[in-house]
Design a binder for these strands. Structure first.
Lengths: 342, 342
DNA sequence: GATTTAACCGAAAACGTTTTCGATTCATTA
DNA sequence: TAATGAATCGAAAACGTTTTCGGTTAAATC
């Protein structure tokens, strides 16, 4: 345990701890000569500041907290990637916690992060969460929060999202323009905003193109596994609606469940039923047929969210007013085999 | 910023900071009465200890550092899941850093973690890493390290791995027993231990079953994308060896690249060529045909690695001798369509 | 009644920084 | 020559805890 401290290099140089500290922090009342000597000794003694002492004194940790529903998920791991990169570039480290889609756990994780005194928190809400007092509590205590992906409009903080409603609208419009007449929607549970928005986009697109909205064409996927939800509901769909010719799924995984079932039943995609996903997972290029989907820029979302958070941290530190912003990142239709009829 | 401190609740109760602290830490020289009063006041004033002050005083951070090649990867996100769960259960938080398979970055990340004074470090080595001084340096400075998955035998620390050689041996033996005669191997780059071991397992299985080892049947996949490596090398394989009837791939992703190419060429799997993967990603149940593979218990690996690390931290703290252990987690053949001939 | 013992509490130091404020030196100016 | 100013440096307090060690009270023992 050869941790050299400020006092050690001060002793080695025969000067005071104050001078050493000041030399390192760029104070102007230190001569170039001593500064050079300090720098040299720091290098030879391999001095690294004790982060705990610095944190205690400066009252910041240079650490960000992240709470996501689950980490084993292509989209979220992409987001994390963006967060970690941006944070590291700006001198922050990242602590990651999972909510497992549970409200109580999400609440506990945020409390943990506050106790660790992270400088800011990034959250994608759990599906269960419909009470935001734990978030507001953190904000009130001066810990800036940025919401991403699964957000709540009611919370007063910055947000980074995609326009789920528009993306869904575009997807369904695409299907309509391709000539599909009877389009089903496999939706997610009722609380998450993006689940609601994608449904609304679906409905709006139908209405704008004079296709009557039929609630029996909407299937709810709110069990544990998106994949199995897709598979099971595809079975119901085929049984209940002989004449359906396309499905817009809330998730690639749901879509892949659908494809799986249709393949198993030897129902031709897209000749008999077309499938449209959402997220553009890697997997969707590998499945057969390749899945048409919406590209959701996970890395960018993470990166932007971290950037905004770090800026707000800086503003709070300088007692500047912080203006919350909501950033909407563009999505793209990725057209592949599952919707292209010859 | 209403952070209540020890001194605040001491003042509210008219007692000393010492007494409050002791009451909270279970010292026996505090009366039941005052302890109760302290506990109550702590609750009403919502006191949370300042982690930085505690860390400085106790010289520990209750934080673990993790360095992995990449986070956007099913196996590694599973491992992280296991690490985070175990850590949280034992009162630790986790800082995650990526090496992007670069030695220099890996080195930098470890230095960062040391500076943050994490209590221990978990690493899966980058493919580039063939010098381990940065790891040994951390160990020498009394920061325990546990290696997992991509390890180096030369480093003196605990390790959690699977028996790659045996798993590969089992896979190839399975193929041989199924009647496959000419089995190719798509291997990984030359430095990582598990790449080497899987290759050796492949070779040994052939030899033990009197099948001559043919180096031209071994294809190197060491580019950026496993998937594309698999696809490209499958093309070469089919061109160069008309009579190959099975491939053992180092990764599911490589295997899926192979499947993709064979599907594109309308080469029947497994009738013409069987494919065997490695890792049991979720994706392998979704591809068509479903992929036979080796199940690699990512979550368990992470959990065990974290558990060992935390135990070693405790032992070091109590000045007990720590005995490094290497844990080998069992793997399983998951038989699916890509190798089952009718 | 004097002494020991047990029960309970607090003063103070320590962890390693950062930062304020004052002190010292030396050259410069009136 | 005395006063001013610039250039350097250091003492000390502070951040919020934990822990050692000693002190005080009251009950128990001789």
């Amino acid at each position: 345990m050869n941790d050299t401290r400020l006092i050690d290099i001060a002793a080695a140089l025969g000067i005071s701890v104050t001078t050493v500290s000041k030399a390192l922090k760029g104070y102007t009342d230190i001569s170039d000569n001593t500064r050079a000597r300090v720098l040299e000794m720091v290098a030879t003694m391999n001095y690294k500041p004790n982060a705990n002492a610095v944190n205690l004194r400066t009252n910041e940790t240079k650490t960000l907290g992240v709470v996501i529903p689950t980490m084993v998920h292509h989209f979220f791991s992409s987001v994390l990637n963006g967060i970690i990169d941006e944070a590291e570039n700006r001198g922050y480290l990242v602590i990651i916690l999972q909510s497992n889609e549970k409200y109580e756990l999400e609440k506990k994780q945020i409390a943990l992060l506050q106790q660790k005194r992270v400088d800011g928190i990034l959250i994608s809400l759990s599906n269960e969460t419909d009470n935001f007092s734990h978030i507001n509590d953190a904000i009130k205590k001066n810990t800036p929060v940025v919401l991403f992906d699964k957000i709540a409009k009611l919370v007063d903080c910055s947000k980074v999202i995609i326009n789920d409603r528009k993306a869904a609208y575009d997807a369904v419009t695409y299907l309509i323009n391709k000539g599909y007449k009877k389009i089903a929607h496999f939706r997610g549970s009722y609380t998450p905003q993006n689940s609601i928005d994608r449904f609304l986009g679906y409905k709006k697109a139908l209405e704008d193109h004079n296709i009557p909205y039929d609630p029996t064409l909407v299937y709810l996927c709110d069990h544990n596994s998106d994949f199995e939800d897709g598979y099971a509901n595809a079975q119901k769909l085929v049984a209940e609606h002989k004449d359906v010719d396309a499905v817009f799924a809330i998730t690639d995984l749901v879509a892949i469940g659908i494809i799986k079932y249709l393949n198993d039943m030897h129902i031709k995609i897209p000749e008999q039923i077309a499938v449209f996903g959402f997220s553009n997972w890697f997997m969707s290029t590998v499945i057969s047929p390749k899945l048409t989907t919406i590209d959701q820029p996970g890395y960018d979302i993470g990166q932007r969210a971290a950037a905004i958070l770090i800026n707000e941290i800086a503003q709070i530190k300088e007692h500047l007013p912080v203006i919350h912003q909501t950033i909407e990142l563009p999505t793209l239709i990725i057209e592949r085999e599952s919707t292209i009829r010859n």
